[in-house]
Design a binder for these strands. Structure first.
Length: 697
RNA sequence: GGAAAGGUAGCUCAGCCGGUUAGAGCACGGCACUCAUAAUGCCGGGGUCGAGGGUUCGAGUCCCUCCCUUUCCA
């Protein structure tokens, strides 16, 4: 009887493209899911875009489109990533869907019937110009602790103090700059502090094997908190205008996005069932039957930043909503990914753009393997180090693993017409393979992928050692020892088959080529193939290429489509080193392809206005006419130019540079100027006849 | 401020309930080999296991203090 597993990854917020953190989580879950499927377990792997909330509403408004349009645009981009990284989701949905509306309203009604919902008046900042209540992040002001200006309403980025928006000195609305008013409004609350919830959560958290110990500790801390740290009830409503799901019995109020986001897991599952894909995947029951069945395992993969929601609110909501809803069997938490030791954040992005990774032709399976080698079952962070990436992939995957097939297959093809033959008793061989498979199986199950990869590579080492010891290239010279040669190579190729089976969850594409191409199967590998001796092979075809370190330079290049936020992080060490590396490469012999050059959008611009800025020694504020639009650009040319002399002249601007927030405002491009040692800058200009907006090619 | 995780060779990490001379991969040096899209094998250098104290016959492994890093605080 196979396990019936419903797996999700955290829902990505639909206001932008995936970053490397998303991809890491999906790869982790995908490896686990593929491993389960290979064992014959029934897995339903779904996810969805988290579409609601004020940030999306406001972003859409700023772009002059509806939130639905914004979400649809982001969603349209998802498949490139999902397919590109071999992520085998069975279904991808959205929280802005009829299923989610129905489920959210249903769960709310049940919680209300259980006496866990109440109303309370809340005083909150209100933007009088915009006519809306302001989320904490949209109130800014001076930090009450260190007096840094322009800090967000929840915490100070300079000194780290956490506070309420009302603690800010001289608060203002980040939307309009208006002084916000304190205004009262009735909000709906979920009574998490109810003794029933607390008792249930104690029990749920304490179930052995359900959660990682560190996660239980963290959740218990919140649960057992007293005084200022006491477990608080949860404010689940927001007032209009809000992009979300309306609360049925509270006109003008919507569910807070974090209420309907996890319910989106179920909405995605329901949509998956409705689409018929579940049935195609071997599940004949209805969505509700499946959900309610006691043997259904509901498993969530999440990052450590959202433990609170997934280990307290979410199980409590499900438990007290009652059947068919069931509590999660496991919530598996992973840490963050850093790039060259620099932390990344959702708002700033990171130096490593997944889309860029794919666009420059890097192999998705390199990244899958690298991450697998680093991932374990704990919540520790993991670092993406370019040098290590190259070493790991080239040494393990190419040098050890792929090389086995490459070196052994040629003998078999040349001398034995593809036929494998083992001398002597093969039971010991198969048994040893079974032992290794069992070891690796346990590690995969526990998400100890790093350990699994170590054990797999240790096995690869043994194959290479044995191959070396028996010197098949010497045997090949002696006709009389053909049997021995065939045995050596057959054993190596069986070992290669075993390795391929064990690596299938991590390297699905390579594994597929090995199964179908080399071993001539009409299907991909399943786990039990580990203990089946192959009897023949097809001629070896190249399976995987090495990483060229120069690709890493290209990866960390800036000005990347698909990573609009990344450039803003230029102040971080990672970006700085990457930029330095790029600069170093540029001054060397690095050659730019024409495609790479075309990515840089150079245009002619007319300087409409040039102004000095109070407090800036080097910068001038330029207002540029680009033909179809006007832009503000800050240029460090004050030392060489009098603002008045610039007005009206033509120059060249990098038009697709990511906007960069500077001390004096946002710079929307870069004007080009030459400079040498102690000389310059000298602004570039265009000859007569050029007009603003012309593209430079 | 409160809390959590972690500090082991140049790098990335293994070291379970304390037990012989602290391990692996990568990198580095040397040798061997030539079957493999320069891939492999063997040998070697290199660590007072963050610091100090304690428990113990014995501690990287347990306890205390301190230092450092990272993260979380709805």
């Amino acid at each position: 009887m196979p396990r019936r597993i419903f797996v999700t990854t955290a829902l990505p917020y639909a206001n932008g493209p995936f970053h490397i953190g998303h991809i890491m989580e999906y790869i982790q879950a995908d490896i686990w899911v593929r491993f389960q499927r290979m064992q014959g377990q029934q897995v339903h792997f779904v996810c969805a875009d988290d579409a609601h909330g004020a940030p999306i509403m406001l972003k859409a408004e700023a772009e002059g489109i509806s939130p639905q349009q914004l979400v649809a645009r982001v969603a349209a981009d998802r498949p490139r990533y999902l397919q590109g990284f071999h992520l085998s989701f069975d279904h991808w949905h959205s929280t802005d869907s009829p299923e989610n509306t129905r489920l959210s309203q249903d769960i709310y009604a049940r919680l209300k019937a259980a006496g866990l919902i109440y109303r309370k008046s809340v005083e909150q900042f209100f933007d009088p110009l915009k006519g809306m209540f302001l989320p904490d992040r949209y109130v800014k002001g001076e930090c009450p602790n260190c007096h840094s200006p322009d800090q967000y309403g929840d915490a100070c980025e300079v000194c780290g103090t956490v506070y309420a928006p009302t603690d800010l000195i001289d608060p203002y609305s980040a939307l309009t700059g208006a002084k916000p008013l304190l205004k009262a409004s009735e909000h709906l609350f979920f009574r998490l502090s109810d003794p029933r919830c607390v008792a249930f959560l104690e029990d749920w958290l304490g179930t052995p094997g359900r959660l990682q110990p560190q996660v239980v500790n963290k959740a218990r801390e919140w649960l057992a908190g007293s005084g200022a740290q006491a477990l608080a009830d949860w404010d689940i409503s927001r007032d209009a205008p809000y992009f979300g799901i309306p609360i049925p019995d509270a006109p003008g109020k919507y569910f807070y996005v974090w209420l309907d986001a996890p319910i989106g897991y179920l909405a995605a599952l329901e949509s998956y069932f409705e689409s018929g894909k579940a049935a195609a995947n071997g599940e004949p029951r209805s969505f509700e039957q499946f959900l309610a069945a006691p043997d259904t395992e509901q498993i969530h993969f999440i990052g450590k930043d959202i433990i609170y929601f997934h280990t307290l609110f979410w199980p409590a909501m499900l438990r007290f909503a009652g059947p068919p809803y069931r509590v999660p069997a496991h919530v598996y938490v992973h840490g963050f990914i850093t790039v060259s030791g620099a932390k990344m954040s959702k708002s700033r992005g990171t130096g490593l753009s997944p889309l860029r990774y794919l666009e420059i032709g890097m192999d998705a399976e390199w990244l899958r393997y690298f991450l697998a080698a680093r991932l374990n079952g704990s919540v520790e962070d993991l670092d993406f180090n370019p040098d290590d990436f190259v070493a790991r992939v080239n040494s393990d995957l190419i040098g050890k693993y792929v090389n086995i097939a490459s070196r052994a297959a040629s003998f078999i093809t040349r001398s034995f017409n593809g036929e494998l033959k083992f001398s002597g008793d093969t039971r010991e061989l198969v048994r040893a393979a079974g032992d290794t498979a069992a070891l690796v199986q346990k590690s995969y199950e526990n998400r100890e992928f790093g350990r699994a990869m170590r054990d797999i590579m240790a096995f690869a080492d043994r194959i290479n050692q044995e191959f070396d010891a028996r010197k098949p290239w010497v045997l090949a010279r002696e006709q009389s020892r053909a049997g021995e040669l065939q045995d050596v190579c057959s054993r190596a190729l069986y070992g290669f088959k075993l390795l391929s089976v064990l690596l299938t969850p991590v390297l699905p594409a390579v594994s597929g080529r090995v199964a179908r191409g080399l071993f001539g199967l009409d299907r991909g590998f399943v786990w039990s193939d580990a203990q089946v001796l192959p009897d023949r092979i097809n001629p070896y075809e190249h399976l995987m290429t090495r990483v060229d370190p120069r690709q890493l330079d290209a990866l960390f290049d800036s000005g990347v489509p698909g990573a609009p936020a990344a450039n803003a992080a230029a102040a971080t060490p990672a970006a700085a080193t990457a930029a330095a590396a790029t600069a170093a490469a540029a001054s060397g012999n690095t050659v730019l392809s024409i495609d790479e050059f075309r990515r840089i959008e150079l245009r002619v611009a007319r300087i409409v206005r040039a102004e000095t800025i109070d407090g800036a020694d080097k910068l001038l504020k330029l207002t540029l006419d680009l033909g179809t639009e006007t832009r503000t650009v800050f240029a460090g040319i004050k030392s060489a130019y009098d603002p008045a002399s610039l007005t009206g002249r033509l120059t060249v601007v990098v038009a697709n540079l990511a906007p960069r927030k500077m001390k004096f405002g946002v710079s929307e491009g870069m004007v080009l100027a030459a400079s040498g040692e102690g000389q310059g800058p000298f602004l570039l200009s265009a000859d007569a006849g050029a007009t603003p907006g012309m593209r430079i090619t």
